Amino acid sequence: MNAPIESSQMRLVALPRLAAAGRWRVEAMRTLSEPCFLWFTKGQGRITVAGVTRGYTAHNAIYIPAGVMHGFEVGPQVFGTAVFFGRDTTVTLPSQPQHLRIREVHAQQEVNVILDMIQREMDSTTPAHERATRHYLGLLGVWLERQSVKAAAETAPPDAARRLVARFTQLMEREFRQGLGVGDMAARLDVTPTHLTRCCRQTCGRSAIDLLQDRRIFEALRLLSETDTPVGRIGESLGFNSPAYFTRAFQNMTGVSPTAFRRSL
């Protein structure tokens, strides 16, 4: 079984390594219990954060707070660094997701130097290297705050569709194990299922049911790969009404049955 990506410890991971154990680990909708910072230095793709899909290219910085649903493409030509701050981080970080397009060369160089110094101190055995690592992490937080403030001054506030889809993804993360459908969630958000789906398609090009099913199947993939929980119990824990329905939904999204996926690990 593959070890979980998450940890209470801060770490830097090259972006291609995130998908080394399966692209589903980064592409499917999921949340982390720790903040994450993505710095892309080469390549392009799409990333969905809180139900909003945008393209990314080189010199894009993306910050994802703990508990925010997201998923992104990592193709063979994509390079960069992911910083996982750890569940108990004391670094001051933005409270909202950020997608920053860093066009100024000096700002690009600045974050590259900070990330290099964090890695160097993490690999070092010299005295006080752990304290130095924490200080450089603090500088990364300062860099992110400054770039976020600058971007906010240049960007229009989110529209009603984005606000609704963000609320939907937050509700989904709390309730996706309960077997609720899109109609149930739309009712809790005081909108119709049709309006909710229209907004989801507007912000990320996918329907509300696609987002919900993606989140549930990601959790199934994680449990199948990281635990020995029986297949039937996994489906039940995710709100599927029957083992047959779970198997059919899983196979429709992944191309294989839950049992076959587990055997392939």
Rank of each mutant, 00 (worst) to 15 (best):
residue 205 G to Q: 00
residue 95 S to N: 09
residue 165 V to A: 04
residue 2 N to Q: 15
residue 61 A to C: 06
residue 187 A to C: 13
residue 24 W to V: 12
residue 32 L to Q: 07
residue 239 G to N: 06
residue 32 L to C: 10
residue 73 E to I: 13
residue 228 D to P: 00
residue 169 T to W: 08
residue 60 N to G: 02
residue 54 R to L: 07
residue 121 E to M: 01
residue 59 H to G: 01
residue 208 A to D: 06
residue 57 T to V: 14
residue 14 A to I: 02
residue 40 F to V: 08
residue 135 H to D: 14
residue 188 R to I: 06
residue 87 R to K: 12
residue 15 L to Q: 02
residue 203 T to V: 14
residue 40 F to N: 03
residue 81 T to D: 11
residue 199 C to A: 13
residue 170 Q to R: 15
residue 47 I to G: 07
residue 28 A to E: 02
residue 139 L to W: 09
residue 134 R to D: 14
residue 128 A to K: 02
residue 64 I to E: 04
residue 246 F to T: 00
residue 172 M to H: 09
residue 6 E to F: 13
residue 20 A to Y: 12
residue 42 K to W: 00
residue 213 Q to Y: 08
residue 156 A to W: 03
residue 153 A to S: 03
residue 265 L to M: 13
residue 253 M to R: 14
residue 174 R to N: 07
residue 171 L to E: 01
residue 29 M to S: 13
residue 101 R to I: 00
residue 131 R to Q: 13
residue 19 A to N: 04
residue 222 R to H: 15
residue 232 G to K: 00
residue 218 F to G: 14
residue 70 H to G: 05
residue 258 P to Y: 06
residue 12 L to Y: 05
residue 78 V to S: 04
residue 80 G to W: 00
residue 64 I to R: 01
residue 197 T to N: 06
residue 2 N to R: 15
residue 223 L to Q: 14
residue 25 R to D: 01
residue 34 E to W: 00
residue 14 A to V: 04
residue 249 A to T: 05
residue 16 P to S: 03
residue 234 I to C: 06
residue 150 K to S: 12
residue 107 A to L: 08
residue 117 M to H: 11
residue 161 A to W: 10
residue 132 A to N: 13
residue 37 F to R: 05
residue 13 V to P: 00
residue 132 A to Q: 10
residue 38 L to T: 02
residue 67 G to N: 09
residue 19 A to S: 11
residue 30 R to I: 05
residue 177 R to P: 09
residue 38 L to N: 01
residue 232 G to V: 02
residue 48 T to K: 09
residue 46 R to L: 07
residue 39 W to Y: 09
residue 162 R to I: 00
residue 76 P to W: 11
residue 172 M to D: 15
residue 188 R to C: 14
residue 19 A to D: 01
residue 37 F to E: 09
residue 171 L to S: 04
residue 87 R to N: 13
residue 148 S to G: 08
residue 183 G to Q: 13
residue 140 L to S: 06
residue 161 A to M: 12
residue 138 G to E: 15
residue 97 P to M: 07
residue 187 A to G: 13
residue 74 V to E: 01
residue 108 Q to I: 00
residue 225 S to W: 09
residue 259 T to E: 08
residue 203 T to D: 07
residue 64 I to L: 06
residue 108 Q to G: 02
residue 183 G to C: 07
residue 111 V to R: 14
residue 242 S to Q: 08
residue 33 S to R: 14
residue 24 W to L: 13
residue 261 F to M: 10
residue 34 E to T: 03
residue 42 K to L: 10
residue 70 H to F: 08
residue 190 D to K: 15
residue 199 C to M: 11
residue 84 F to D: 09
residue 17 R to P: 02
residue 255 G to P: 04
residue 60 N to K: 07
residue 57 T to R: 09
residue 242 S to N: 11
residue 139 L to S: 12
residue 259 T to L: 04
residue 253 M to V: 05
residue 237 S to A: 12
residue 59 H to E: 00
residue 240 F to P: 03
residue 206 R to T: 02
residue 169 T to K: 05
residue 53 T to F: 03
residue 163 R to F: 12
residue 59 H to K: 14
residue 194 T to N: 10
residue 194 T to G: 15
residue 231 V to Y: 12
residue 96 Q to N: 12
residue 239 G to K: 02
residue 244 A to I: 02
residue 64 I to T: 01
residue 237 S to G: 08
